[in-house]
Design a binder for these strands. Structure first.
Length: 381
DNA sequence: CCTTCCCGCCATTGA
DNA sequence: TCAATGGCGGGAAGG
């Protein structure tokens, strides 16, 4: 008997186009953020998210874990998370940075150093000895003693959340701004660029990088020398010393959404921002956008009148923040900022990453939404 | 071909 | 016990 009802007849191919991108974690993340970055949202119920976003539960866990380790959410109970918003990021980064530098110094002493610091009891992991443990594939340390606590700990070590934190630490705790995923992976493992562990690690890093990209904490590029793909950090890094700059304060419980990152294309290290490349991108993008808006004018034009008619209600991703992002963005464009060197020619409109990504995300989101509605809504009429 | 990474099985955890 | 959670890697889409 087994399978007869499911695979059978009709839905071999969902309509004309199935695209992985419609199901990507980064899109999901964007939608998630759109859904909850709104006035009055304090608590998030996972069931709610699952149904509103119409995705498998498993994926929600992915998103939520990553967001939590960035400080956007915090778990309050089973099935419940508190919304911290983008304003929580600065604090989280600060914490990560302190944590990172402390550990680096600490392991000079004993290997023990039971450090239990602020709030969340999260500590980790190898990287103490770069090359001692070497090959310990599966049966590591499973002698007889530490199996109870160590097992749990072992599991935690491999969690997406922790990996995210460590990945972010890579950027925040150093001057390095760019890593390829392989680099990151091998750095996160104890430099043992070995075996299948790397592969798995990298797989996870793809996931993480994608959601961080969708929030514009990082962006995908490639190394200048090699053509290898890599990720560049975009968010302001916390200052190592206390006091001084109050640039990234954590004011309200909630802050502007995409406003912040629109302001920081390149804050520190104001050096060589690849102008040429950027202009190229801008041009290319402009073209693409124009083209796509023909192809899918629905999304394009809709997006525009969100600004005014903000009562329009649609799918999983709500208009609310459109106003928010419309404001800063347009302001941004005409503001004679320090990067007016870039703005000199060509339309300043889409030259900034954040905006660019945003628009493309919204376009994707719209497509997805339309498909879904179209499909599961024969009752409609 | 190689890179990216979605899907969902199934082990763990927690109530 | 069972439901919620979340490693993990196969293998398919994308380039």
């Amino acid at each position: 008997m087994s399978l007869d009802s499911n695979s059978a007849s009709k839905n071999v191919q969902r309509h004309y186009s199935y695209s992985r991108k419609q199901k990507s974690l980064s899109l999901l993340c964007t939608n998630f953020l759109s859904l909850y970055n709104r006035e009055g949202v304090e608590l998030i119920c996972l069931d709610d998210a699952t149904s509103k976003l119409a995705v498998e539960r498993r994926r929600i866990y992915d998103i939520v874990n990553i967001l939590e380790s960035i400080g956007v959410l915090s778990r309050t109970a089973k099935n419940k998370y508190a919304w911290r918003g983008f304003g929580g990021i600065a604090g989280a980064l600060q914490g990560l940075m302190e944590d990172g530098s402390k550990k680096e110094c600490l392991n000079v002493f004993t290997g023990d150093s039971s450090s239990k610091e602020l709030e969340d009891g999260e500590d980790e992991e190898s990287l103490s000895n770069p090359n001692t443990g070497s090959q310990n594939d599966k049966s590591d340390a499973s002698i007889l003693s530490v199996s109870a606590s160590s097992r749990t700990e072992n599991r935690r070590e491999k969690s997406l959340g922790l990996l995210t934190k460590n990945f972010v630490k890579l950027f925040v705790c150093s001057d390095e701004d760019m890593y390829s995923l392989d680099e990151a992976a091998s750095r996160l493992l104890g430099d043992g660029s070995h075996s299948a562990m790397m592969k798995t690690k990298v797989r996870r890093l793809y996931d993480i990088a994608n959601v961080l990209s969708s929030m514009n904490l990082i962006e995908k590029t490639h190394t200048p020398d090699t053509r290898k793909p890599a990720f560049r950090w975009l968010w302001p890094k916390p200052k190592s010393d206390t006091g001084t700059t109050g640039v990234l304060e954590i004011k309200g419980p909630k802050k502007r959404l995409f406003g912040t990152e629109l302001t920081n294309i390149q804050d520190r290290s104001g050096e060589s921002l690849p102008i040429n490349k950027d202009q190229n991108c801008a041009k290319k993008l402009e073209k693409r956008i124009r083209h796509e808006s023909l192809t899918s004018e629905a999304s394009g034009s809709k997006l525009k009148d969100l600004g005014q008619g903000q009562n329009y209600h649609f799918g999983p991703f709500a208009p609310h923040d459109t106003s928010k992002l419309d404001a800063p963005s347009s302001r941004k464009v005409k503001e004679p900022r320090d990067w007016n060197s870039l703005a000199s020619k060509y339309r300043p409109q889409y030259q900034n990453q954040a905006l660019r990504d945003l628009f493309s995300h919204y376009r994707e989101a719209w497509k997805t939404w339309f498909y879904e509605v179209g499909e599961k809504n024969p009752v409609r009429n």
